[in-house]
Protein backbone atom coordinates (compact mmCIF):
# COMPACT_ATOMS: atom_id res chain seq x y z
CA UNK A 1 0.00 0.00 0.00
CA UNK A 2 1.56 3.28 -1.08
CA UNK A 3 1.40 6.16 1.32
CA UNK A 4 -0.49 9.37 0.60
CA UNK A 5 1.20 12.22 2.46
CA UNK A 6 -1.45 14.80 1.54
CA UNK A 7 -4.34 12.63 2.65
CA UNK A 8 -2.59 11.59 5.83
CA UNK A 9 -2.03 15.27 6.59
CA UNK A 10 -5.72 16.10 6.06
CA UNK A 11 -6.79 13.22 8.32
CA UNK A 12 -4.28 14.40 10.90
CA UNK A 13 -5.72 17.91 10.75
CA UNK A 14 -9.24 16.49 11.15
CA UNK A 15 -8.22 14.50 14.22
CA UNK A 16 -6.46 17.55 15.65
CA UNK A 17 -9.54 19.75 15.09
CA UNK A 18 -11.80 17.12 16.66
CA UNK A 19 -9.58 16.70 19.68
CA UNK A 20 -9.30 20.45 20.19
CA UNK A 21 -13.09 20.71 20.02
CA UNK A 22 -13.35 17.99 22.69
CA UNK A 23 -10.68 19.75 24.73
CA UNK A 24 -12.57 23.03 24.47
CA UNK A 25 -15.77 21.37 25.66
CA UNK A 26 -13.99 19.65 28.55
CA UNK A 27 -11.76 22.43 29.81
CA UNK A 28 -13.64 25.63 29.03
CA UNK A 29 -17.20 24.44 29.49
CA UNK A 30 -16.86 21.33 31.62
CA UNK A 31 -14.74 23.03 34.25
CA UNK A 32 -12.03 20.38 34.18
CA UNK A 33 -9.34 22.81 35.20
CA UNK A 34 -5.70 21.98 34.58
CA UNK A 35 -4.27 24.46 37.07
CA UNK A 36 -6.30 22.51 39.62
CA UNK A 37 -5.05 24.13 42.79
CA UNK A 38 -7.49 27.08 42.66
CA UNK A 39 -5.97 27.66 45.96
CA UNK A 40 -7.90 29.01 48.81
CA UNK A 41 -10.65 26.87 50.33
CA UNK A 42 -13.23 28.19 52.76
CA UNK A 43 -16.27 26.54 54.23
CA UNK A 44 -19.64 28.03 55.11
CA UNK A 45 -22.77 26.52 56.60
CA UNK A 46 -26.28 27.58 55.64
CA UNK A 47 -29.79 26.68 56.83
CA UNK A 48 -31.14 26.79 53.30
CA UNK A 49 -29.18 26.80 50.06
CA UNK A 50 -32.11 26.91 47.63
CA UNK A 51 -30.92 26.15 44.11
CA UNK A 52 -27.20 26.54 44.80
CA UNK A 53 -25.11 23.82 43.14
CA UNK A 54 -21.51 22.85 42.55
CA UNK A 55 -19.83 25.29 40.14
CA UNK A 56 -22.07 28.17 41.24
CA UNK A 57 -19.99 31.35 41.23
CA UNK A 58 -18.69 33.16 44.32
CA UNK A 59 -18.48 36.95 44.01
CA UNK A 60 -17.24 39.91 46.02
CA UNK A 61 -18.92 43.19 45.06
CA UNK A 62 -20.13 41.44 41.92
CA UNK A 63 -16.64 40.37 40.82
CA UNK A 64 -16.26 36.58 40.43
CA UNK A 65 -13.51 35.28 42.72
CA UNK A 66 -14.19 31.54 42.84
CA UNK A 67 -16.79 28.82 42.77
CA UNK A 68 -18.64 26.30 44.91
CA UNK A 69 -16.87 22.95 44.79
CA UNK A 70 -18.95 20.76 47.08
CA UNK A 71 -22.17 20.80 49.06
CA UNK A 72 -22.72 18.31 51.88
CA UNK A 73 -24.81 17.93 54.99
CA UNK A 74 -22.89 18.49 58.20
CA UNK A 75 -23.57 16.67 61.49
CA UNK A 76 -26.18 19.27 62.52
CA UNK A 77 -28.03 18.61 59.23
CA UNK A 78 -27.18 22.03 57.87
CA UNK A 79 -25.75 22.55 54.41
CA UNK A 80 -21.95 22.71 54.45
CA UNK A 81 -20.71 24.48 51.34
CA UNK A 82 -17.09 24.34 50.27
CA UNK A 83 -15.80 27.36 48.36
CA UNK A 84 -12.73 27.42 46.15
CA UNK A 85 -11.38 30.97 45.88
CA UNK A 86 -8.52 32.72 44.14
CA UNK A 87 -5.32 32.40 46.11
CA UNK A 88 -4.08 35.62 47.68
CA UNK A 89 -7.48 36.98 48.68
CA UNK A 90 -7.20 38.79 52.00
CA UNK A 91 -10.54 38.41 53.74
CA UNK A 92 -11.18 39.57 57.33
CA UNK A 93 -12.46 36.95 59.79
CA UNK A 94 -15.87 38.59 60.03
CA UNK A 95 -16.56 38.22 56.30
CA UNK A 96 -20.14 37.16 55.70
CA UNK A 97 -21.51 34.90 52.96
CA UNK A 98 -25.01 35.19 51.55
CA UNK A 99 -26.82 33.26 48.84
CA UNK A 100 -28.27 35.57 46.21
CA UNK A 101 -30.16 35.13 42.98
CA UNK A 102 -29.33 36.92 39.75
CA UNK A 103 -32.67 38.29 38.65
CA UNK A 104 -35.97 36.82 39.78
CA UNK A 105 -35.46 33.37 38.27
CA UNK A 106 -31.74 33.43 37.55
CA UNK A 107 -28.95 31.27 38.85
CA UNK A 108 -27.96 31.40 42.49
CA UNK A 109 -24.54 32.46 43.64
CA UNK A 110 -22.69 33.26 46.85
CA UNK A 111 -21.84 36.86 47.63
CA UNK A 112 -19.05 37.48 50.15
CA UNK A 113 -19.05 40.73 52.09
CA UNK A 114 -15.73 41.52 53.76
CA UNK A 115 -16.02 42.79 57.31
CA UNK A 116 -13.82 45.21 59.24
CA UNK A 117 -11.57 43.03 61.43
CA UNK A 118 -7.81 43.15 61.05
CA UNK A 119 -7.38 39.40 61.47
CA UNK A 120 -7.51 37.48 58.15
CA UNK A 121 -9.19 34.18 57.26
CA UNK A 122 -6.88 31.21 56.72
CA UNK A 123 -7.45 28.47 54.14
CA UNK A 124 -9.91 25.88 55.50
CA UNK A 125 -11.62 28.31 57.88
CA UNK A 126 -15.36 28.31 58.36
CA UNK A 127 -17.32 31.47 57.64
CA UNK A 128 -19.51 32.08 60.66
CA UNK A 129 -21.75 34.84 59.32
CA UNK A 130 -24.04 33.45 56.66
CA UNK A 131 -27.36 34.43 55.16
CA UNK A 132 -29.47 31.67 53.63
CA UNK A 133 -31.18 31.65 50.27
CA UNK A 134 -34.45 33.49 50.02
CA UNK A 135 -37.18 30.95 49.52
CA UNK A 136 -39.98 32.60 47.57
CA UNK A 137 -42.55 29.92 48.29
CA UNK A 138 -41.94 30.21 52.02
CA UNK A 139 -42.08 33.97 51.75
CA UNK A 140 -45.37 33.94 49.88
CA UNK A 141 -46.70 31.26 52.24
CA UNK A 142 -45.95 33.32 55.34
CA UNK A 143 -47.38 36.44 53.69
CA UNK A 144 -50.62 34.64 52.89
CA UNK A 145 -50.73 33.29 56.43
CA UNK A 146 -50.04 36.66 58.09
CA UNK A 147 -52.60 38.46 55.98
CA UNK A 148 -55.24 35.96 57.06
CA UNK A 149 -55.83 34.82 53.51
CA UNK A 150 -55.00 31.23 54.30
CA UNK A 151 -58.63 30.08 54.57
CA UNK A 152 -60.43 29.00 57.74
CA UNK A 153 -58.31 29.41 60.81
Amino acid sequence: MQSHPARDLVVGLFVLAGISALAYLSTQLGGLSFDGQGGFTLRATFDEIGGLSARSPVVISGVPVGQVVAINLDEDLRAAVELDLEPGLELPVDTSASIRTSGLLGDQFIALEPGGEDELLEAGDILSFTESALNFEKLIGSFVHDAGLGGSE
Binding site: L22, L25, S26, Q28, L29, G30, G31, L32, A54, R55, S56, P57, D107
Partner: peptide, 18 residues
Protein backbone atom coordinates in the same frame (compact mmCIF):
# COMPACT_ATOMS: atom_id res chain seq x y z
CA UNK B 1 -20.59 32.10 27.96
CA UNK B 2 -20.71 32.19 31.76
CA UNK B 3 -24.18 30.62 31.90
CA UNK B 4 -22.89 28.01 29.44
CA UNK B 5 -19.82 27.32 31.56
CA UNK B 6 -21.77 27.17 34.82
CA UNK B 7 -24.33 24.72 33.47
CA UNK B 8 -22.05 22.16 31.84
CA UNK B 9 -20.49 19.53 34.08
CA UNK B 10 -17.49 17.59 32.76
CA UNK B 11 -18.12 14.11 34.09
CA UNK B 12 -21.79 13.73 33.25
CA UNK B 13 -22.29 16.04 30.30
CA UNK B 14 -19.07 16.10 28.28
CA UNK B 15 -18.02 12.50 28.93
CA UNK B 16 -21.59 11.30 28.37
CA UNK B 17 -21.76 13.21 25.11
CA UNK B 18 -18.53 11.67 23.80
Amino acid sequence: FSSLENAVVFRTDVVGSA
